[in-house]
Amino acid sequence: MRAFDYVRARDVSSAHLDAAVPGTRILAGGTTLLDLMKCGVERPERLIDISHLGGLNDTTVDDQLIHIGALAKMSHVAANAHVQRQAAVVSEALWRAASPQLRNMASIGGNLMQRTRCTYYRDPAAYPNCNKRSPGSGCAALQGVNRNHAILGASESCVAVYPGDLAVALVAFDAKVKVLGDTERSIPVDDFYRLPGDTPHIEHTLAPGEIIVGVEVPVVPALKQSHYLKVRDRVSYEFAAASAAVGLEFEPDGHTIRDVRVAMGGVATKPWRARSVEQALRGKPFNEKVIRSAAELCVDGAQGLEHNRFKITLAPRVVARALMAAGGLV
């Protein structure tokens, strides 16, 4: 790890000004950033510590909106009774992420900013070719062991999968990231993350110096009947092979689907909204045959690599089972 300067921010306004200086990184929980510094991926010249700032760690819930502060701990949000009641998918996504120790330290803002778990990205000594780490150097995963890589949203420059859980739930329900820079603005989470294209090192739409200050989730009927399903190689402390965040709203007959939300994790280069599945299900009867047929649409356009083609089969099954669980069929 290289030597760096440490600055304890006075307030959010000064922090965002300091963060605009090249070579600077924001430190909150540190559960991702410090790991990357230790393995030589991140080499900041200066860290701006915002972990102690007040006013950014509250979670408020009403009938219209859930607001989660950027410094709220993952475990605290997951355990919030109002979040569990109004947005089960958010609580479940958080509980299934990382380990208890990490959830107790990691912030919501930091979770949204976490970097990929691609082995080649995280080992610069052994694998110098990584466009995400060193633009123009190539992508070692294309010809390497790529079981955990993306089947959707990939490019010739990068096939690294987005690793998180919370953002998948947020994308499904049109949540927005609140950021502070020279002005305040809201960014839909689906627009916050960028596809790799030929610039995979640019992962999000934050401008230099902008800091995440919170997340807002609209409370819609489908959010109240929601579920997060994560399929992985082991039950604990493992990233998704495929996951699905879903929600359902029924017509008064209790059987016809009025609204449905579907997003996937573990299979794409960013949290992936499965709008084709949603469109296929709205207005349809809720039964297993209809659900499984529509779920197959979630992998339209998928391109498998040598070791990850199993995800093309797995993802529709995860989506279907999540929907059936949300609707009480399983």
Rank of each mutant, 00 (worst) to 15 (best):
A274H: 04
T269D: 02
R2F: 07
S155G: 08
V231W: 11
Q225P: 00
I68E: 03
S51P: 01
D253M: 08
R317D: 08
L17M: 12
A320L: 03
A28N: 01
F250C: 01
A88K: 15
E296L: 11
P218M: 05
H204E: 10
V213S: 12
Q64H: 15
V168E: 02
I66S: 11
V319T: 04
V12F: 01
R261N: 04
L94D: 12
R117Y: 03
G164I: 04
H227L: 04
A9Y: 02
I312S: 07
W272C: 05
I212G: 04
L152V: 13
Q143Y: 10
M324W: 06
T183D: 14
G266S: 09
V12D: 00
D259E: 15
A302H: 03
E156G: 15
H255G: 07
E249S: 14
I211G: 00
V215C: 05
L27N: 01
Y237C: 10
E203K: 13
R2M: 11
V219N: 11
A175M: 01
G327V: 06
H52L: 13
K132E: 09
V213F: 05
A20F: 08
R8H: 08
A326H: 05
C39D: 12
G197Y: 08
A9R: 00
P22R: 06
D182I: 11
G40Y: 12
L329W: 10
K132W: 02
R282I: 13
R2G: 07
S91L: 09
P271K: 10
S134H: 13
A15P: 00
Q86C: 11
D5H: 09
F192D: 08
I312K: 06
H255L: 11
